[in-house]
């Protein structure tokens, strides 16, 4: 599945200049459309858009460690929660603007990832062991946050509403959060694009493919994986901050649930691991599936059932992901 990543794909079929131009045009059109879209939709529509770009940005940040670095992390929700708690806590108890909290969250998440990564990568945790190890970290964090009253305990931290607040308090109409998540998504897409063409991304691809060969080429595998891990953690934190502001609270049960942990992985895998557009496409598709099926809502839980079935069918039909499918199709048409 990693053969579908950006680095490998560009390797085997470099995009022709005309196709590249098409891509740029498409991207501009997409951004323009995205900016205008909320004006054309009602409240429910805006909520859907928020959902799409929330998952797109969240999964994009996971894509860095899971897709580009090829390490299946199940602890990503932890860094998301760190961002959320950092801003909620500093706002509630210190009266600081969530922007400060956001920066703090990024810092703490980065440090936590550096510490955790230094341990797990040094001890050479790979594959399933890495997944379970990061999951363990996430669970431990969930229980700790839920039982230490300093962090609000199991009730979490509510974020008090401040009507007439200046923009620095990050409290908006839903449409405001849409633009924030959209901005994050675009920023992360840019970041991933840069990774794909940089020495960092290259060496990550090598480490992912064969760590022994990577070492003979002067690459220190655990250092590279650590950097990817820290980067992905630091990009997860802002998503947490903004999401906390959107739902006006933060608590361990929702932010660190097993389900949140697992869900962040899916848009990237479905859309295309290690690709710039994968997470966005995956998030869009999955949100649409849930939306369409909840229209037919027979009973509560039906859309979840449909979502589950989609997850079973998808990897069988499109193992490499949506974006690689599109990309290969266009490449073949071009020949």
């Amino acid at each position: 599945m990693y053969s579908a990543s950006d680095v490998s794909a560009a390797s085997v079929a470099p995009p022709a200049p005309r196709r590249r131009a098409l891509l740029v045009i498409g991207l501009v059109a997409f951004v323009a459309g995205a900016v205008v879209a909320p004006q054309l939709l009602d409240r429910h529509g805006v909520a859907i858009l928020v959902s799409i770009f929330f998952w797109a940005s969240f999964s994009s940040s996971w894509n860095i460690i899971g897709g580009y670095a090829g390490q299946f992390s199940l602890g990503h929700a932890a860094f998301f929660a760190v961002g959320a708690y950092a801003s909620a806590w500093t706002y509630r108890y210190l009266g600081l603007s969530p922007l400060v909290g956001l920066a703090l969250g990024v810092l703490v998440a980065g440090l936590a990832a550096a510490a955790l990564g230094a341990i797990v990568f040094r001890y050479k945790l790979l594959g399933t062991y890495f997944a379970i190890g990061t999951l363990a970290f996430s669970e431990i964090l969930r229980v700790t946050l839920g039982n230490v009253s300093w962090f609000g305990g199991s009730g979490g931290i509510p974020i008090p509403l401040a009507p007439e607040a200046p923009w620095t308090l990050l409290q908006f109409q839903p449409v405001g959060y849409y633009y924030l998540f959209l901005a994050l998504t675009l920023a992360y897409m840019l970041l991933c694009w840069w990774i794909g063409r940089s020495r960092f991304g290259f060496q990550l691809a090598v480490v992912r493919d064969n760590e022994d060969v990577a070492e003979t080429l002067g690459v220190r595998p655990e250092s590279l994986k650590l950097r990817a891990f820290v980067l992905s953690a630091m990009t997860a934190a802002p998503v947490g901050t903004i999401y906390a502001q959107y739902v006006m609270f933060v608590e361990p049960q929702t932010f660190l649930s097993f389900s949140m942990v697992i869900q962040v992985v899916i848009p990237a895998v479905i859309g295309g691991l290690g690709t710039v557009f994968g997470p966005v496409l995956g998030a869009a598709l999955l949100t649409l599936v849930i939306e369409l099926t909840s229209e037919l809502a027979v009973r509560p839980g039906f859309s979840l059932f449909a979502y589950g079935c989609a997850l079973m069918v998808f990897p069988l039909l499109v193992p490499s992901g949506i974006w690689p499918l599109i990309r290969d199709f266009v490449a073949r048409r071009g020949r």
């Binding site: 697992i262 992985v265 899916i266 895998v269 479905i270 839980g301 039906f302 979840l304 059932f305 979502y307 589950g308 079935c309 989609a310 997850l311 079973m312 069918v313 998808f314 990897p315 069988l316």
Partner: peptide, 12 residues
């Protein structure tokens, strides 16, 4: 992904 789907579908 498949088994996650199975898990979700069964729970749902």
């Amino acid at each position: 992904i498949f088994t996650i789907g199975l898990l979700t579908a069964a729970d749902a």
